[in-house]
Amino acid sequence: MTLDTLIIGSSGIITAVGGEPALRRRLLDMGLTPKTKVMVRKAAPFGDPIELFLRGYELTIRKEDAKNITIERC
């Protein structure tokens, strides 16, 4: 499954990060690397973007970008 489909409040472990180079690089740089645990904290009032909790900090990312991140539920 991909990160954008994760239910709010639940967590997953990243298995792969895709997308075009600039985007993928940005995601990796922010610490969204394989084997990292990510929790979906909440969604913005209009339903998008979403707020994530990983590596001890809060990150916001658009759903369409989150589609490029494959995760495993945990």
């Binding site: 707020e51 900090y57 809060e58």
Partner: peptide, 11 residues
């Protein structure tokens, strides 16, 4: 071209 992706820290 595409905008810089909106990937932002919430401090």
């Amino acid at each position: 071209g595409k905008a810089v992706p909106f990937i932002m820290e919430l401090p």
